[in-house]
Nucleic acid binder design. Structure first.
Lengths: 138, 138
DNA sequence: TTTCTTGCAAAACATTTGCAAATCG
DNA sequence: CGATTTGCAAATGTTTTGCAAGAAA
């Protein structure tokens, strides 16, 4: 963690708290809406600016889950995202990536892995139960 | 593979070939440029339309590597992307994801994994050799 | 005071859409 | 022929930028 050396401003603190409090993975627009609900009215530019700053500082994660906008995640400990191709819902899983596998990658490619960004696609439990027909075409 | 049932048009075929021939991971704009170099002039809308069709058909992969635009990949067999945080280069690695790990995910979450989308971030071999100072801030 | 950040509006991109004309099966 | 796709241009949605005014160290 590099929580020292962070240049906090009111805006950054509030935005950080909103993302940390979120149970989903809000987009910049979602964050704007939640800020407004809390009585804040920051400029769009400020929100993007703050999000970028917080991501660069390692306090937030930026996710690209395939739907237009970037999404932000307040959980910075290593975790996976499971995206259901049928209902679109994102689950999180705290299952560690096997070290042996990362070591193999390093040995075969010379690439030093510092961070993983993993999205597993498929069917969540409830969609699998209700599934009829070919899930891949959903 | 579902190469049957594909509705081929001239545009789709040419666009598919351009992406398959690419050694990098071109964006829609890169693809437009290469089409122009080959003497074609398809509309932007057509290129996006064709790319979406080919991705949905399972013939191309769409990647979101964190820089604004989607990138397209003609290699559809399961593989990893290694992104160097210093020079930005993307490498591919054909190292399989351990089945045991995917099974563990399934058992712990009930999620049925159909496809993986994995980007490992870190330092490529050449950047690591030339690295001085703290690579994370690069 | 000196530097970095915010607010605002405009600009820059990436992508989608609507509709008439062309193409495919 | 009937269904689908293309081309074009305009619309949409996201993110960045420039610059004057304001806040932080």
């Amino acid at each position: 963690m590099e929580s020292h050396n962070i240049h906090w401003t009111t805006q950054r603190r509030v935005i950080y708290n909103v993302v940390r409090a979120a149970k989903d993975h809000p987009t910049a627009k979602d964050i704007m809406d939640r800020l407004r609900d809390e009585g804040h009215s920051f400029a769009y530019g400020t929100v993007y600016n703050a999000l970028r700053y917080l991501v660069d500082a390692g306090l937030l994660l930026e996710l690209q889950l395939g739907d237009g906008a970037s999404r932000y995640d307040g959980r910075t400990e290593e975790h996976l995202h499971l995206k259901c191709d049928r209902c679109g819902r994102i689950e999180e899983a705290g299952i560690a990536v096997p070290d042996a596998w990362l070591t193999a990658v390093h040995e075969e490619t010379g690439f030093a892995v510092l961070r993983t960004d993993i999205v597993l696609h498929g069917l969540c439990e409830s969609c699998r139960e209700g599934a009829d027909g070919n899930p891949r075409e959903a």
